[in-house]
Write a protein that binds this DNA or RNA. Structure first.
Length: 314
DNA sequence: AAGACGAAAGTGGTTGA
DNA sequence: TCAACAACTTTCGTCTT
């Protein structure tokens, strides 16, 4: 983890240097994951990475100085995550309290110990949860803003006493899954499971539980949200990406996406877009990246090409 | 031989009585 | 709580390049 942090900081430094040299150069790729699919959302006045969801600039007006803001913001966010300190202070305080006492304070002491024991274990599991969120977010190449959001949700769940008796692994995995969806850069359940230590069943159980208990609304993922990441995993360029998105938009208009899994739609659209652009990827390759079977890709792709009257000649 | 195709049976999640 | 249901997967034989 330390190594990863250093790696990131180096990246940032490199970028900064480059920026200084070129003056007001436009940001071309995500400093977090290196993806080139940056999206300008003028409605929200921000630039974010379509691959990992990192908000790079929240005020598009002035690009230059915004870089520093991004860096220092990242620093302060990182600094705020440092829960272990409280734990240490907490622990130290304990040892001094216990020393003096007489008579009936034996019982009082017991109570204290019990209470501090509880405080200790919840504190400890909280720290563990944060480190788990961090570990998994690293593995999924998610930016700090999403990590922070997931941590905040965890805190919320803790305040509502939703954690006790449940596996931290399941909760944290589900929270990351939720947060990714909320930030418009969904990960598949399978991707989350791969880096999680619990099985998919438990993650989805925790997912449903948290949505209910925290009153969270997660709109169904759009196939479009998956396109940038799948495309870069398949080493397909921006033209194919936009072609795939165009296909999905048409498909949505024609109501071909209703009731269908968004990942399958995305997979098929990418498959078609790649062929149309002369950069053929086999159904197997697309299937490996997206996690849906070739059969599903075939079914979606048949529906799409027939209904949208796209001639796909191999 | 590899990729694409499609039929058929199986699986897990949702819904409505 | 249970059965029906649609989407998706698994498996496998066949066709095409």
């Amino acid at each position: 983890m330390v190594a990863l942090k250093r790696d990131k900081e180096e990246k940032g430094d490199k970028k900064k240097g480059k920026n200084k040299a070129a003056g007001k150069e436009e940001i071309k790729e995500c400093p977090e994951c290196g993806s080139k699919s940056l999206v300008r959302d003028y409605g929200k006045a921000e630039i974010f990475c379509a691959d990992c969801g990192l908000v790079i600039s929240e005020n598009i007006v002035d690009l230059g100085p915004e870089w520093r803001a991004f860096d220092s913001e990242q620093m302060s966010r990182r600094a705020r995550v440092g829960a272990p300190m409280t734990y240490r202070i907490h622990d130290k305080g304990l040892s001094t309290v216990v020393t003096w006492g007489s008579q009936s304070q034996g019982q009082r002491l017991k109570k204290w110990q019990q209470r501090t024991h509880i405080a200790n274990t919840t504190e400890r599991s909280f720290i563990f949860a944060l480190s788990e969120i961090d570990r998994m977010a690293c593995a999924l190449r998610l930016p700090v803003n999403i990590r922070e959001a997931a941590s905040m949700l965890y805190r919320k769940a803790m305040k509502k006493r939703l954690i006790r008796g449940r596996s931290i692994e399941g909760i944290t995995s589900a929270l990351l899954y939720i947060t990714c969806r909320q930030y418009g850069v969904p990960r598949t359940l399978e991707e989350v499971r791969e880096i999680s230590r619990v099985e998919q069943k438990e993650i989805s159980r925790a997912y449903r539980f948290l949505l209910r208990e925290l009153n969270l609304k997660v709109s169904p993922a759009s196939p479009i949200d998956f396109v940038p990441r799948f495309c870069s995993l398949l080493d397909l360029g921006g033209d194919i990406r936009s072609k795939a998105i165009e296909i999905i938009k048409k498909a949505t208009e024609a109501e071909l996406t209703n009731g269908r899994g968004p990942i399958g739609i995305a997979a098929a659209a990418i498959y078609i877009a790649a062929i149309l652009s002369g950069e053929h990827r086999t159904q197997k390759e697309v299937s490996d990246v997206t996690g849906v079977t070739e059969v599903t890709i075939r079914n979606r792709y048949k529906e799409l090409s027939e209904q949208l009257e796209i001639d796909v000649l191999l």
